[in-house]
Write a protein that binds this DNA or RNA. Sequence first.
DNA 1: TCAGCTGACATACGGTTCGTATGTGGGTAT
DNA 2: ATACCCACATACGAACCGTATGTCAGCTGA
Lengths: 196, 196
Amino acid sequence: MATASRAKGMEETRAKLIAAARRAFAAEGYAAASMDALTAAAGVTRGALYHNFGDKKGLMAAVVAQVDGEMAMKAQQVGATVDDPWGSFLAEGLAYIELALDPEIQRIVLLDGPAVLGDPSQWPSQSACLEETRRVVSDLMETGVLKPIDVEATARLLSGAALNAALWVAASEEPEETLPKAVEAFTSLASGFLKT
Amino acid sequence: MATASRAKGMEETRAKLIAAARRAFAAEGYAAASMDALTAAAGVTRGALYHNFGDKKGLMAAVVAQVDGEMAMKAQQVGATVDDPWGSFLAEGLAYIELALDPEIQRIVLLDGPAVLGDPSQWPSQSACLEETRRVVSDLMETGVLKPIDVEATARLLSGAALNAALWVAASEEPEETLPKAVEAFTSLASGFLKT
DNA sequence: TCAGCTGACATACGGTTCGTATGTGGGTAT
DNA sequence: ATACCCACATACGAACCGTATGTCAGCTGA
């Protein structure tokens, strides 16, 4: 048997801590979230936390990785529903915008994440959204849909614009009314990369 | 005489605190910066700080406002050197990118700022860069250079893309080499808003 | 001129937080 | 059966933020 099987509930403890942290970080913000309260809500003590994640920042990294992964998965699902490559790409971008309307994602990934973990492009999860965007952009360039510009740069700017648009929509007083504006602007923006 | 003249060195105290905070926040980050050390470096005690700025967040807001103002001023100066309206606009965008290469600006405005003060578009300084961008975009639309899309949305996305590009360039290992890529991508991106 | 008041700033303290160092109980290998 | 290991609990120390209280300079009005 593998050595990891020693503790039956190890993975379960980690999962419970991440879930509790996700709620606490989203509700109170990273800085204001107390490790005591957090671990108590998870049904363990701080000992378990520091054993599994090292420190508060380590727990945050695990939470961000989980949320990031979920975002990428959802966006990819949306993109897969469209056949046209360019349309599929646009759909993914718009999916990011809508995903980022979730207050939990805003607080954890967009606001606290950079401050705690540094520049998102340096995260292990590679800001999974970005990874997916880069992949699609690369394909679109090979098929001649997009201008042959640096892939990384293109992905970074588009991703940045999308997330920023989401933050704007979410902070506005009437999200339902500003969302279409953001969508239209994003579409125009992205079309700047189209060939000819 | 105005009541504010009561204390001769009031403005001076504020300036010294802001200057010290700017150094500390840039070097250690907002969370790690100690108010004790900060005020000592400024030559005053924590009493002066809480009297002038209310709390730690208040001091951060003052610092961000100052940095933000300087950014807007510099970008505007650069934009003024170009006559062609569209060229001037592009120049300002690129100026933002280069400005954000400063580690101080990255740490204070791009990383810690949003976490501490919330969404940048809600700041009193209105992320001064954004204000300037909005003004220029509005002009370009009236003169028919840009497609008639929502001004706010356009400004937000462009500003977001620029700042994100800067973060990317700064975090890269060879900024001098990635900067041209970012510039090219930003130019293409912005051209998506051009008419026809 | 002078008593009184206001406001800027210093100082001492309490409450809370994070990270570590030490203790413990159950499973494992031999 | 014995010694060991590891996940986790618990107790402790250091640091920090914000506030409550104290002090002193300068304006005000008579």
